[in-house]
Simulated assay, not measured.
Amino acid sequence: MFKLFKKKGISVNAVVDGQLIPITAVKDDVFSEKMLGDGYAIEPKNGEIYAPVAGTITTVFPTKHAIGITTKDNLEILIHLGLDTVNLEGKPFKLMVKEGDTVQQGMQLADMDLEMVKAAGYDDTIIVVYTNMDLIKDVSEIVTGNVIHNSEVQIIKLND
Score class of each variant (00 low, 15 high):
residue 31 F to M: 08
residue 72 K to M: 12
residue 88 L to M: 12
residue 122 Y to P: 02
residue 95 L to Q: 12
residue 118 K to I: 11
residue 118 K to V: 11
residue 55 G to Q: 01
residue 8 K to L: 12
residue 74 N to Y: 11
residue 153 V to W: 06
residue 85 T to M: 10
residue 115 E to T: 13
residue 13 N to E: 14
residue 128 V to P: 05
residue 15 V to F: 00
residue 40 Y to N: 01
residue 146 N to C: 00
residue 87 N to L: 01
residue 68 G to M: 09
residue 46 N to F: 05
residue 115 E to H: 12
residue 51 A to S: 13
residue 23 I to W: 03
residue 32 S to W: 00
residue 80 H to V: 09
residue 24 T to G: 07
residue 87 N to T: 11
residue 2 F to W: 13
residue 129 V to T: 12
residue 18 G to C: 13
residue 130 Y to F: 15
residue 14 A to N: 06
residue 51 A to L: 02
residue 110 A to Y: 00
residue 23 I to E: 09
residue 53 V to Q: 10
residue 37 G to P: 06
residue 8 K to P: 04
residue 111 D to R: 12
residue 38 D to W: 14
residue 147 V to F: 07
residue 14 A to Q: 11
residue 11 S to Q: 12
residue 152 E to Q: 12
residue 60 V to S: 00
residue 140 S to P: 02
residue 95 L to N: 09
residue 53 V to H: 08
residue 30 V to G: 02
residue 7 K to M: 10
residue 42 I to V: 15
residue 14 A to G: 12
residue 146 N to Q: 08
residue 109 L to R: 07
residue 34 K to Y: 03
residue 21 I to R: 14
residue 53 V to E: 09
residue 114 L to I: 15
residue 9 G to M: 01
residue 23 I to R: 07
residue 52 P to A: 02
residue 21 I to M: 14
residue 102 T to Y: 14
residue 126 I to F: 12
residue 72 K to A: 14
residue 6 K to N: 01
residue 29 D to S: 13
residue 80 H to R: 03
residue 61 F to E: 09
residue 138 D to G: 02
residue 111 D to E: 15
residue 82 G to A: 03
residue 87 N to A: 02
residue 87 N to W: 00
residue 109 L to P: 08
residue 50 Y to G: 08
residue 101 D to S: 13
residue 21 I to Y: 09
residue 44 P to N: 04
residue 143 V to R: 07
residue 16 V to G: 01
residue 47 G to P: 07
residue 160 D to S: 15
residue 8 K to W: 10
residue 11 S to P: 01
residue 82 G to S: 03
residue 37 G to Q: 06
residue 117 V to I: 15
residue 66 A to V: 03
residue 108 Q to L: 11
residue 49 I to K: 05
residue 34 K to G: 10
residue 155 I to D: 02
residue 44 P to E: 01
residue 106 G to M: 01
residue 112 M to H: 04
residue 27 K to Q: 14
residue 27 K to G: 02
residue 65 H to M: 07
residue 56 T to V: 09
residue 72 K to C: 01
residue 109 L to G: 10
residue 93 F to Q: 03
residue 121 G to A: 03
residue 107 M to Q: 15
residue 159 N to M: 10
residue 140 S to R: 05
residue 74 N to A: 14
residue 80 H to Q: 03
residue 75 L to V: 15
residue 106 G to C: 00
residue 147 V to M: 06
residue 58 T to A: 04
residue 25 A to Y: 07
residue 100 G to V: 03
residue 136 I to D: 00
residue 105 Q to K: 13
